[in-house]
Design a protein around this nucleic acid. Structure first.
Lengths: 328, 328
DNA sequence: GGCGAGAGTGTAAACGATTACATTGTTTGT
DNA sequence: ACAAACAATGTAATCGTTTACACTCTCGCC
């Protein structure tokens, strides 16, 4: 492996000079710089990031710890974060916790050990407790989910309003017997349920049902089947994330329920499949690109100025109306 | 930051002893070990991985460089790799190249600079040329796509057979006017096209069409629209990856073509949406879990024994018959 | 002509671990 | 009883950088 010593020798200077040429942060005679750069390209030298990171006690990496890499929402976020980080010369380490607090702890420790400059993170609900310990160790930005602390930067969707708007859309289109399926793994589900109930109250209605369940296709399916077999069957189903939407849709199909004439269906997040099925699904779309980019920018701000006062950015979703919620 | 020195001081031993307790690779008096472990947990000490990596000239990280993190096939692979690596105490750095040779080079360099133990990698077609340079620098395992070299471990699908089987399925069900859409970004598309043509030849048929296009939904859509408007319209469409399948499906719907009675559709890879649409899509499913796991195992073998002769593992796909290819 | 400022460079000490080598006891075999 | 082997530990070099400090010139200025 060619090191800075080899370059120094080849250029006839000290390693300090080579380092200074690389960092470009000190006066160097033009001719010396030439020689060093020449040696560098001659030897095909690449600085060792490990050594640099050890010495500088920091690195140009940020961590992205999400709850499920297979969830399209998070891969979209990942892409946005990566692009934004890349522009600043940072690389991204991506990990997923699978909504598992143990893995969460493991990966946050790993991030710390890897000396990352900061972490973008979507915490499980259990996390709030152990949070402060980590927050002290490195810059953090939390996305998608609320952490019960004022001491932290967050990028969130205005979930209550988004759910309110989505629910109101159903009500305006004439649906009256609404059922809600909400994920129980995150704070997101709770907030969306609040918006759901608020909209119903404005219409002086009660929900037919509201269930907090594990955010998996299977749970969405099972719960929907039960709803449909119930004597008081809903005429519209509200789901708080795309996996539940998928499960509900599958159940409606298996039960041969016509959508939306018998039962309408709405959910969150744009997905590939949402507009391919029949009818396409009405969704509240989250601005994934903006969420990822904003989180990255906040993180960089905090890295540069650790004592800056914390900020919470709340973004709006966009209602995308399709066939699954057509006028009754 | 608490370092090994603090632990040594607290336990009244030298740093060497602490290190030996940690590595567990030398005889230590039980009582001393106790004291050291006590000090470690007292101080909440965690070894600095950066320093360890610098000294040892290696690390417990592997890189996973894929062409699109948003492609469900690759996220599934990612998950499998992560699980397998975790079992060995390794962590995974995931990056995506977006089929872009520049990004590919960037990330491979990054992996090298990060001192990863090895890389699992799905190369673009342009990559073969510059390949040997990288192969020399660190252990490699190539997945999904062929690299023109005997000097490398690979985990591949038996693409020709898989495509042959999928095509034969269409032919057995009575379809005769087949069109094929193949991705042009990887070797995979080419191999699948070979299987497609081979099956047709066995039936003494010619394809109605065979297009190599960019593996994006939009291209799949546009090309399918053109096929459907052509005077010699196919009665079945074969797609070589799930993005093209999605595009083709969308086109069939927009053109209000009944599937499969007017035109059948088959593709590769199981996806969430493939079984939610109407009709569900017949696919050749790839064993993603097995691909990821095998690649990881091969990588570890090579890390342990760099001079071992290279191996190519070829896995079989599974035909999953659904409604989109029903008997004519 | 002497002095301060700054340009330009080198020397060597970090960063936090691992490990070759040295050292000191304690067994063990003959 | 003595050499050899080994257990148990410490000392210090090392990995590849960055950077504080020191040094030497060369100016410009009084």
């Amino acid at each position: 492996m060619t090191s800075i010593k080899d370059v120094a020798k080849a250029a006839g200077v000290s390693t300090a000079t080579v380092s200074r040429v690389l960092a470009n942060n000190a006066p160097i005679k033009a001719e010396t710089r030439e020689r060093v750069l020449e040696a560098i390209s001659q030897l095909n030298y690449r600085p060792n990031l490990i050594a640099r990171s050890l010495r500088a006690q920091k690195s140009a990496k940020i961590g992205l710890v999400v709850s499920d890499i297979r969830n399209p929402f998070f891969t979209a976020i990942g892409r946005a974060v990566e692009d934004a980080a890349y522009e600043q010369g940072y690389s991204v380490l991506m990990c997923n916790t699978d909504e598992n607090p143990e893995k969460e702890e493991l990966y946050l420790n790993l991030m710390h050990d890897e000396n990352v400059a900061g972490v973008i993170f979507s915490p499980t609900q259990q996390f709030s407790a152990s949070f402060n310990a980590y927050n002290a160790k490195m810059p953090f930005v939390v996305i998608d989910r609320v952490v019960n602390s004022k001491e932290i930067d967050m990028v969130l969707l205005d979930n209550v309003s988004a759910a309110y708007e989505l629910t109101t859309h159903l009500l305006e289109n004439g649906y009256r017997k609404l059922a809600g399926l909400f994920g129980d793994a995150s704070t997101t589900g709770q907030e969306r349920s609040r918006g759901f109930h608020k909209a119903l109250k404005d219409y002086q209605l009660n929900p037919v049902a509201a269930h907090f369940i594990s955010p998996r296709i299977k749970q969405g399916y099972d719960t929907t089947i039960a709803l449909l077999e119930n004597s008081n069957r809903p005429d519209a189903i509200f789901t708080s994330n795309s996996l539940l939407t998928a499960g509900a849709f599958q159940a409606l199909r298996d039960k041969k329920i016509s959508v939306p004439s018998e039962v309408a269906l709405v959910g969150f997040d744009e997905t590939t499949w949402g507009e391919l099925v029949d009818p396409p699904i009405t969704v509240m779309s989250q601005p994934t690109e903006e969420i990822g980019r904003t989180a990255t920018e906040l993180l960089f701000q905090r890295i540069q100025e650790p004592s800056r006062s914390t900020k919470t950015v709340i973004l709006k979703g966009t209602l995308i109306v399709k066939g699954s919620s057509g006028k009754k």
